[in-house]
Design a protein around this nucleic acid. Structure first.
Lengths: 337, 337
DNA sequence: TTGAAAGCGCTAACAG
DNA sequence: CTGTTAGCGCTTTCAA
């Protein structure tokens, strides 16, 4: 029964009516005979008719598809964002095309290009760590494709954004470590060309200032993945004796450094308190459980999608003013600090 | 500079040639004047011409896109599979549309439908836990859309498959627990209507038999997520005194049960050894690190994509015989058992 | 109430 | 070597 795919044309032929009649009947056009309408709809259902979205997209010049580019879907934060996007978009009749840049600039440019080729109606993007040039996003704007940045935005571009209050989140968790008594807090920092990395570092510095301390340059190390913890382990262990706390730019790094210290005989949080950022599920699986900052990925995705769809339907209040929505961060105190 | 998107038509107009000449020039058709060719290509580059894949798909009746349906991208195993698929597909000029079913049957049916609507050339699928009916996959076959199952296949359907040797993997890791001295091993099992759940349970039973033991019905509990560990915790703790090992159908569940036992004063692996399945990154982050079975997600994804593309190009040896590729499982002995 | 025709962007036989 | 034409599946004027 390898049947030919149903189309308006062959439905029309089978029923001895014209394609336009079928087209109208299928969308309950007002001036169409009730009988014809019913006949067409029944037959369409029988042959499992489904409109060809390629043809529709071509005709309407919009694909009812939104493109998503994130660094890596393996991270819980980004998969949560995606779930949020999907739930909202599906509900509004949109489809979602997901791409991952693997933190690679060239791949990101390719992804954006591929989504453009597919004529997506808009894009939701979280930029990769290695992205320094933003021309591909400028091009998007020039082509009139609406764009909303999520979490990792680029500052030199006016555009809608959905962010976490990284600055206050970082400040909050570092103040927590300080309140606990820590006075020599190491910061494992993310790349400073990304807003999230920069804001978290500045929050860290501000928290120290809040307590009348100044930050030490040598207490900030660029290190934002477990594998970098491994490659910088001598550097980190070299400082271990002089510190009583560590604030990491994310939870994986925190979990990795915690393990490194434990393996070298340090008690956590007894000798060194550790905190992360993001509240990855991992944070409650490691021992001790990880003190961190909650980030609402699902809600951020949903909000970003909402902003994009608003742009698409063009019924936003401020047609041209870019919106920025900042989500609050929540402190999650657990066992590690 | 919100420029109109370049098309063959407006390139043709600008250059005073016909659309077909432009079309030919752009694909270096043999019989086209070198000058014209160069002129067209230069102009096309200048205006950033990109072919409209919707139009191409409509014309060629194939979209150069493959659809992927997995339960949840948040799991490392599935994201690895996706990375494998992407790397292979991109290299062959295909694009990838990713959908997640969220372990929900209806969502899965929707996903398959949406991918059909997009006229994907083929699909790669890992079925959801709640999928009992397989009609939507039968329909696919009837429409001539090639399908390769990955990891979670459905047995009542002849089709290409890429699997892990779950049976041997489970048998191996349980034999390891037995060799270590465990004699009362609990199994936290997955749904038995999924091949992976069943095979892992059967591997567990076989390993016991290998050691001259018979399995006890009350030592098998359906429990395959951390939240089910939570909801069945009394049942599990009730057996804790009588067991010396636990084999879990996946690593998250293993991590959760490990934590449950630790919180209740049990030493791992001293009193109870614990093993998981999958070698999630989590396995090396928890304490004690988790003994488990390695599963090669990336390679499985790559292989599945390869099988699908072979079907699409139609140059496989056995046109109609479905292929099954089984990947070996590897024991990863760590601290927990 | 229905049909014919044009067109979205592209390709490919056919004709010149 | 290049242009004309038809058609992929669909919508939408315009005409009947």
């Amino acid at each position: 029964m390898k049947s030919e795919k149903a189309s308006l044309k062959n439905i029309a032929e089978a029923l001895n009516v014209s394609v336009s009649t079928v087209s109208r009947a299928l969308k309950n056009h007002p001036d169409i005979n009730d009988d014809t309408c019913k006949r067409v709809q029944e037959y369409a259902r029988k042959v499992h008719y489904r409109p060809n979205v390629l043809a529709l997209g071509l005709k309407h010049q919009r694909s009812m598809t939104i493109g998503v580019v994130v660094p890596e879907i393996v991270h819980h934060f980004f998969s949560s964002i995606i779930s949020g996007i999907e739930d909202l978009a599906y509900g509004e009749g949109y489809r979602v095309m997901i791409c991952q840049s693997n933190e690679d600039y060239l791949r990101e440019v390719m992804n954006v290009q591929a989504l453009m080729d597919h004529r997506v109606d808009g894009m939701l993007v979280s930029i990769s760590k290695s992205t320094l040039d933003h021309q591909h996003f400028v091009d998007l704007a020039n082509h009139g494709v609406p764009l909303v940045f999520m979490d990792r935005a680029c500052n030199d571009l006016v555009s809608d954004k959905v962010l976490t209050n990284d600055y206050e989140g970082a400040r909050m968790v570092v103040r927590h470590l300080l309140k606990r008594g820590c006075r020599n807090i190491l910061h494992l920092a993310g790349p400073q060309h990304l807003c999230v990395g920069r804001e978290r570092q500045e929050g860290y510095i501000q928290a120290l200032n809040d307590y009348g301390l100044t930050h030490r340059e040598d207490f900030v190390i660029r290190c934002d993945t477990p594998s970098k913890v491994e490659s910088r382990k001598n550097k980190i262990l070299g400082k271990a004796e002089n510190i009583d706390g560590i604030f990491c730019v994310n939870d994986f790094t925190a979990a990795a450094v915690m393990r490194l210290l434990q393996d070298n005989g340090y008690d956590i949080p007894g000798q060194v308190a550790v905190a992360g950022f993001g509240d990855d599920p991992l944070a409650s699986m490691v021992r001790p459980t990880l003190t961190t900052v909650e980030q609402r990925g699902y809600d951020m995705g949903k909000t970003a999608a909402r902003m994009l769809l608003n742009r698409l339907s063009g019924d936003t209040i401020d047609e041209d003013t870019p919106q920025t929505k900042v989500f609050p961060a929540f402190l999650k105190v657990r066992e590690s600090g």
